Amino acid sequence: MPIDAAKALAAEPRSGEISWNRKDVQLYHLGLGAGVPATDPDELRYTLESRLHVLPSFATVAGNGSPGVISSLSMPGVEVDLARVLHGGQTLTLHRPIPAEGSATATGRIAAVYDKGKAAVLVMRTDVADADGPLWTNDAQIYVRGEGGWGGDRGPSPRLEPPRGEPERTVERTVREDQALLYRLSGDWNPLHADPEFAKLAGFDRPILHGLCTYGMTLKSVVDTLLAGDVTRVRSCTTRFAGVVYPGETLRIRMWREEGAVRVAVSAVERDDAPVLADTVVAHS
């Protein structure tokens, strides 16, 4: 079996130094579609170095996403075909605001391995800390199709009860045709998002947008719409990737305000509101 759960969980964590600067932050924001309109003061806080605010989801790519999902798939006990890999969900927990420039130590390990029958799920945890202490924790839930069925723990269900009533706000965001090509420059080089032939091998008609790009676009919409543009209010952001997004499509982002949190659902307008992100919760101060 390509995945040895016991060996993967027992493997020593991998640590490495990461660093980032204002240019990295700006490139990430541009990859999410920030800067439209280019002279809008609310957009300039994402694009202009003299007033730069860091969207918390930058944590998913800081240091070029290292240690990233692809490198983690080569850890002891894990040997899988990249074409069978899908990003199933993401949880980001912020311990304090992310500086526009910095260096830190990132420590990655496989925190859990679940048997979903037709697939295995790996929970890849990355803890990042600098000289002043913890900065953030990333948990990526990775589905590996065809690798389940060994009788292991199925793990928790990420499904939540749907939000009640009509959303407080609904916004639509257009995904540019070249958005995946720009976003991947922040460090996620999976050919699924750029190479048509590889996308076909993975079962898609054409390259798809990175799930974490949709994740970042969604968090930006919540911050801009319901958190008064204040990135420091975000405490965590959890989502389940319920479907794919193709460059050129339009995202419909629906938001419900709850005590200390915003519930979010995201769908693809052109495909009859096909779900894209589900069970999404942004906790905030």
Results as ranks from 00 to 15, higher is better:
182 L>W: 09
119 A>E: 09
184 R>Y: 10
274 A>C: 03
65 G>T: 05
51 R>E: 15
249 E>A: 12
195 D>G: 09
32 L>Q: 09
267 S>M: 07
273 D>M: 09
274 A>M: 12
213 C>N: 02
277 L>T: 03
159 R>H: 12
106 A>D: 11
83 A>N: 06
255 M>T: 06
22 R>Q: 15
201 L>C: 05
175 V>F: 04
5 A>H: 12
68 G>A: 12
44 L>N: 02
162 P>V: 08
242 A>C: 11
90 Q>H: 15
68 G>R: 06
207 P>A: 00
250 T>Q: 10
148 G>E: 08
63 G>Q: 13
237 C>L: 12
119 A>I: 03
127 D>C: 08
204 F>S: 10
193 H>M: 04
21 N>A: 11
222 V>R: 07
126 T>K: 05
134 P>H: 00
31 G>T: 03
227 L>I: 01
50 S>T: 11
202 A>P: 02
152 G>I: 07
187 G>A: 05
39 T>K: 10
109 R>K: 14
198 F>I: 11
133 G>E: 10
10 A>Q: 11
223 V>F: 09
195 D>Y: 00
125 R>Q: 15
188 D>V: 04
275 P>V: 11
205 D>V: 00
238 T>E: 15
178 D>H: 07
195 D>S: 10
184 R>D: 04
216 G>F: 06
161 E>M: 03
75 M>P: 00
26 Q>P: 00
255 M>Y: 08
85 V>N: 11
202 A>V: 07
37 P>C: 11
225 T>P: 07
207 P>Y: 02
263 R>V: 02
1 M>E: 14
269 V>E: 11
79 E>P: 00
7 K>I: 02
93 T>N: 10
19 S>Q: 13
96 R>N: 10
112 A>P: 04
118 K>T: 14
261 A>F: 06
146 G>H: 06
155 G>P: 00
187 G>K: 07
255 M>W: 07
161 E>A: 15
119 A>D: 09
249 E>P: 07
220 K>Y: 00
12 E>I: 01
259 E>R: 13
17 E>L: 09
155 G>Q: 01
